[in-house]
């Protein structure tokens, strides 16, 4: 090393040398290094000499950055789309909870529009929105947010889609006899029905999405011993599906039985996004708070995961 760098100087050089790496990855790599370096410096005595020695062991900042680049080089690590079609990202690898999470709840990535975790187009990174609203910090994601959720919080999250599904089933049962044999299956921009299909098919499909899908999904996740993070993300996504199915079912019934129609249904559907957004936020916060409160009592809170 030609000149002695202090820790901040070293971190800045590593950060510079990581130019081109996605911002979230870059910040995270530097934050990781800072945490490890700080602990090392304190352990070595915490003085200037300790700082210099710890930094000398790391090698040149550019070399360190090259190591980081190498380790984050593989595709699974970066929330990048699998490819582009007509300028739109696509992704047809089977979705995993961690991929859904890094796209839909990724405070460390400033992009609000992320490549979808499955399909063509974009999805919303609620984590980036929460950062902009000042609700969480970009580095809050670092500690795998949903993994510290309490059983009660997870149960509450799983209850949401089930309750919505039960509401949909109750609604369908209550109005079954009053619905005609053919019910609306598609609406135009003004909210008027423009396509119809058989009642058992339409109602069955909507109740299936609202109630049966979450039940089957939770049963499957439980059998496979899914992680807390997976269950939290699954609950959130299923809540969105259940709410959408319930809203559409309600509108279908209102339209077919009472002749209600209006463009405002679009607002209701868009508004449904608030539910998963709120759930993501509450779950991430609950998990982080749990982690922070657990931090000081190292020996007593150590658990075998």
């Amino acid at each position: 090393m030609t000149e002695a760098l202090d820790m901040n100087g070293y971190l800045a050089r590593v950060h510079d040398a990581l130019e081109g790496v996605p911002a979230g990855e870059r910040d995270e790599a530097v934050a990781e290094l800072e945490a490890n370096l700080l602990a090392d410096i304190v352990r070595r005595g915490g003085n200037d000499a300790a700082e210099m020695a710890a930094i000398a062991d790391l090698g040149e900042p550019e070399e360190y950055a090259a190591q980081v680049r190498e380790t984050i080089g593989d595709a699974a690590v970066l929330p990048q789309p699998q490819g582009h079609i007509f300028g739109m990202p696509y992704e047809f690898r089977s979705p995993t909870a961690s991929r859904v999470m890094e796209r839909m709840w990724n405070p460390s990535d400033p992009r609000i529009m992320m490549p979808r975790s499955w399909g063509v187009g974009w999805t919303i990174n609620f984590g980036a929105i929460a950062v902009r609203l000042g609700l969480v910090r970009p580095d809050d994601v670092e500690e795998r947010p949903f993994e510290n959720l309490s059983d009660a919080a997870l149960r509450a999250a799983m209850t949401v889609p089930i309750v919505l599904g039960l509401a949909a089933a109750a609604l369908a049962a209550a109005f079954w006899t009053r619905l005609p044999g053919q019910v609306p299956v598609h609406f135009n921009g003004a909210g008027a029905a423009d396509d119809w299909a058989s009642k058992p098919f339409v109602i069955g499909l909507l109740v299936g999405v609202a109630l049966v899908l979450p039940l089957l999904s939770f049963a499957w996740r439980t059998l496979r011993g899914a992680s807390r993070g997976t269950i939290a993300v699954t609950s959130t996504m299923l809540s969105l599906f259940s709410l959408l199915a319930t809203v559409i079912l309600g509108y279908t019934i209102a339209n077919a039985v009472f002749g209600v129609e209006g463009w405002w249904i679009l607002l209701l559907i868009l508004g449904s996004l608030l539910l998963p957004a709120t759930m993501f936020y509450l779950l991430a916060r609950a998990s982080l708070q749990k982690e922070w409160s657990a931090a000081p009592g190292a020996a007593t809170t150590r658990r075998d995961l």
Binding site: E32, L33, D57, Y64, Q67, A295
Partner: peptide, 20 residues
């Protein structure tokens, strides 16, 4: 430390290790 820290970052990203 220059080889270990980046690998820790990678292992964490790959969800093989957690940090607290």
């Amino acid at each position: 430390s220059g080889t270990v820290y980046p690998l820790l970052g990678r292992l964490k990203k790959a969800a093989l290790v957690d940090s607290v």
